[in-house]
């Protein structure tokens, strides 16, 4: 690892570390009740009692941001989990067995990939209707094709390695080969794909919630906070800037890590 790469990695690690700490903080306890409205604290300025100030209902922005980070992390993790889980199964089956199943699934996959994932997620939201769990399902499904493609490519390579061929000669079943011998070898390639996927999920979640078809009010979400604060941008720009900056930090941290952890080919 050369010097610039190392400093990128460390910066990414520090930023992601901060985000993880904030997530944990949000899981345990927030300084204020994120739902409590306090008309006296309406548009309160940034201060020691309200780190990020207060919004139009006098709710503490920092507490809401903490919950928002927690929600975004939860949604992004679920989305990536769905994408990785089904993508890996699909990619392993098609890559290992090949044949007509592979042909059909990969053609379908190509058609899906030609489509921006946001658009795909919009179609699925259109079918399921807006909401947090619908959003998870929509983004999760939209992410499957890209994961499946990466896994398939890797399985194609591993399947023809000498040791896999020799294990096969000893009579190991296909299932055993897939689970015991191929799956562990996918770790490295999955790691960088997961980081990039996580990043895209954070971005997509924030975008969808900003559009109002993700997390529903009154539950706070970073994207939603942005769109709500936008209406008051003349009086209280800070309520929009802080949630936005947190989104930037999340994406920046993960992308720095993703750039340095295992190069994607």
């Amino acid at each position: 690892m050369d010097k610039s790469k190392k400093s990128k990695f460390i910066t990414g690690l520090v930023i992601t570390g901060i985000i993880v700490l904030l997530t944990l903080w949000g899981m345990i306890k927030t300084p204020y009740d994120p739902y409590a409205m306090d008309s006296g604290a309406k548009f309160a300025k940034v201060s020691f009692s309200h780190f990020f100030g207060c919004d139009q209902f006098g709710r503490d922005v920092f507490s809401r941001v903490l919950i928002g980070i927690r929600e975004t992390m939860f949604i992004a993790a679920s989305v990536v989990f769905i994408g990785v889980f089904f993508g890996t199964i699909l990619g392993m089956i098609t890559g290992y067995f090949g044949g007509w199943l592979d042909e059909i699934l990969m053609r379908f996959n190509d058609a899906m990939l030609a489509f921006p994932s946001i658009l795909l997620a919009l179609v699925i939201i259109g079918i399921f209707g807006p909401g947090k769990y619908q959003l998870i399902a929509a983004l999760g499904i939209a992410f499957i094709p890209s994961f499946a493609r990466v896994v398939r490519g890797e399985v194609l390579k591993i399947r023809n390695l000498d040791y896999v061929l020799s294990v096969k000669l000893y009579g190991a079943s296909d299932l055993r080969i897939l689970v015991v011998h191929i799956l562990p070898n996918l770790k490295t390639v999955l790691l960088s794909t997961v980081i990039i996927g996580f990043n895209n999920a954070v971005l997509a979640e924030a975008g969808m919630s900003y559009l109002g078809i993700g997390v529903q009010p009154p539950e706070p979400s970073l994207g939603r906070m942005l769109s709500e604060a936008q209406a008051y941008i003349y009086t209280s720009p800070m309520s929009a800037i802080f949630p936005g900056l947190v989104i930037v930090l999340m994406i920046l941290g993960f992308s720095l890590l993703g750039d340095t952890v295992g190069k994607k080919h």
Binding site: K8, A206, L226, Q230, G244, V248
Partner: peptide, 22 residues
Amino acid sequence: NQLIMAVPSFFSGILITLIFGV
């Protein structure tokens, strides 16, 4: 560049509104 890549377009839109509009 690395920083700009991490700014979602709806947030940069808000910042542009704030800086150039407000």
